[in-house]
């Protein structure tokens, strides 16, 4: 066989074989990975909306899902917004908990991120970042406090702390949160949010 033909044949077959092998592995693992993701979401709702006993999916769009957290009586006590947006170098997926009137945040959880380890990845850090997101006033857009402060008391009601050395990651999270709160508020105003007849799973 001519060399040039052989090169094409070998590379193509290596590619094809690898591809079909990977497709098989993909199909075999898909279900479990989905289950894991679902579990992460359910655990996140319980964390971001304190007191949640069960949850329902209220709205679903690409990269934007709204879950409702319910107390043991079945009353809606808060929203968990699962949203993805662009971070410093890749997508950040987070879940924000808010109260039912959408005026206060309850908690922020980072579901998935690929920010710079040691810098932007601190958006997952409780003491540096996440704890400053509890109980913020989100009736107006939340803003960043720069330079960073040490305690939550030093922040204004609608301010959150910046991560020193990771301004872009902090701003990305802020932007994702502000946009999603605004979007949810719009949805509620237009009456497009289902009233919780659909189960989260």
């Amino acid at each position: 066989m001519k060399l040039s033909v052989r090169m094409v044949v070998v590379l193509t077959s290596v590619g094809l074989l690898s591809g079909s092998f990977l497709a098989t592995v993909g199909i075999l693992t898909k279900e479990r990975i989905e289950i894991n993701k679902q579990r992460v979401i359910e655990e996140a709702i319980i964390k971001v909306v304190p007191g949640t006993e069960s949850s329902t999916k209220l709205y679903e769009a690409k990269d934007f899902k709204v879950y409702g957290g319910k107390d043991p009586d079945g009353t809606l006590i808060g929203y968990g917004i699962l949203v993805s947006g662009i971070g410093f170098q890749d997508k950040i997926t987070l879940m924000l908990g808010t109260n039912i009137s959408l005026t206060k945040t309850t908690r922020l959880e980072i579901i998935e991120q690929k920010e710079t380890p040691g810098l932007g990845a601190k958006i997952e850090d409780e003491d540096v970042f996440l704890k400053f997101w509890e109980g913020r006033d989100c009736s107006q857009p939340i803003s960043l406090r720069k330079p960073a402060v040490k305690t939550a008391e030093e922040l204004a009601a609608s301010e959150v702390n910046t991560i020193t050395g990771a301004t872009i990651s902090s701003e990305s999270v802020l932007k994702i949160v502000n946009n999603s709160v605004e979007r949810l508020r719009q949805l509620i105003k237009e009456g497009n949010l289902q009233k919780g007849e659909q189960d989260a799973r």
């Binding site: 690898s18 092998f21 990977l22 592995v25 993909g26 693992t29 479990r32 990975i33 894991n36 992460v40």
Partner: peptide
């Protein structure tokens, strides 16, 4: 190919 297999395996069984 094998890296992707390892990645999927970890994501499925050791999230």
């Amino acid at each position: 190919t094998f890296v992707t297999v390892a990645d999927r395996f970890l994501a499925a069984y050791f999230p």
